[in-house]
Amino acid sequence: MFQNTTVLIPAYNEENRIHKVLEIVTKLPFKRIIVINDGSLDNTYHEAIKFPIEVLTHKTNLGKGAALQNGIDFVQHSPYWVFLDADLINLSTSHIEKLLSPLEEDSETAMAVGMFTEGGKLHVDLAQRFFGILNGQRSFSQSFIESLPSITWARFGVEIFLSKYADHQGVKVHYPVLEGLTHWTKEEKFGLVKGFSYRLQMYRECLSSLKNWHHYI
């Protein structure tokens, strides 16, 4: 399974966090591991290249959707795909195995969406429980990736589009629980004021995707 899987990790200003994710991901024999350095202004690139992976770099920040799309376009074909955030806390190889197992066990499964429901940060867990459509930890079949229209436009709304598109296509989706996994909040990463500003930007982009996703299929 792992030898047939490509991992895409979009990253923007994650120099202090991305190594924790890459330390775990590089323990598994994946086909390819690609970090998309999305116009970071810090040392994200230099932290990423310390690991045996591939790094794509955007000169400016294009958004999460564009980062993932460029990763897809760069690889083009992989039997399985995993999308992971660069700011995860407590990631383990078992979490990744849980993301991939629905695809391995059922060939009709097109996507698995990891759920944070217990063992992490309470406010993050609650948000994921009620708005799991936002979770960025996902696995996909090649057929689903091939069917996707471009997600370059989606920015932070990319997960909403992926879920809405899967529902529109009527494909099978699983929701494995990733116990203990969580991530850094915007405020923890960038400070209260700047972090809250990023959070508002994220909400705006998510709402735009929720409102307009059907125009992009």
Rank of each mutant, 00 (worst) to 15 (best):
residue 31 K to T: 01
residue 72 I to C: 03
residue 20 K to F: 05
residue 81 W to H: 11
residue 59 K to T: 05
residue 38 D to N: 04
residue 69 Q to G: 00
residue 11 A to D: 12
residue 63 G to T: 00
residue 74 F to P: 06
residue 116 F to A: 14
residue 75 V to Y: 02
residue 113 V to H: 09
residue 85 D to N: 13
residue 98 K to I: 05
residue 125 D to K: 13
residue 36 I to V: 14
residue 11 A to Y: 10
residue 81 W to E: 04
residue 79 P to V: 10
residue 33 I to C: 00
residue 68 L to T: 10
residue 86 A to R: 08
residue 95 H to Y: 00
residue 101 S to I: 15
residue 55 V to P: 03
residue 30 F to R: 07
residue 31 K to A: 06
residue 87 D to C: 10
residue 120 G to T: 14
residue 48 A to S: 09
residue 65 G to L: 00
residue 42 D to G: 14
residue 19 H to M: 05
residue 107 S to G: 10
residue 63 G to E: 00
residue 81 W to Y: 08
residue 28 L to W: 07
residue 48 A to W: 15
residue 48 A to P: 03
residue 80 Y to T: 02
residue 119 G to S: 11
residue 39 G to R: 02
residue 69 Q to E: 14
residue 32 R to H: 08
residue 40 S to E: 08
residue 76 Q to M: 09
residue 34 I to F: 13
residue 57 T to C: 04
residue 52 P to T: 10
residue 75 V to N: 02
residue 93 T to P: 00
residue 105 E to M: 13
residue 10 P to V: 06
residue 43 N to H: 02
residue 52 P to W: 03
residue 80 Y to E: 01
residue 23 E to D: 12
residue 11 A to W: 08
residue 113 V to Q: 12
residue 100 L to A: 01
residue 107 S to H: 04
residue 101 S to T: 13
residue 29 P to E: 06
residue 50 K to S: 13
residue 60 T to M: 15
residue 26 T to Y: 11
residue 107 S to V: 15
residue 59 K to I: 07
residue 80 Y to F: 14
residue 100 L to R: 12
residue 29 P to M: 08
residue 57 T to I: 11
residue 89 I to P: 01
residue 125 D to V: 11
residue 68 L to N: 06
residue 85 D to Q: 07
residue 92 S to D: 01
residue 121 K to I: 05
residue 110 A to G: 05
residue 36 I to S: 11
residue 125 D to W: 08
residue 18 I to Q: 04
residue 56 L to I: 14
residue 117 T to Q: 15
residue 55 V to C: 01
residue 77 H to F: 10
residue 113 V to R: 14
residue 47 E to R: 15
residue 42 D to Y: 07
residue 59 K to M: 06
residue 26 T to G: 05
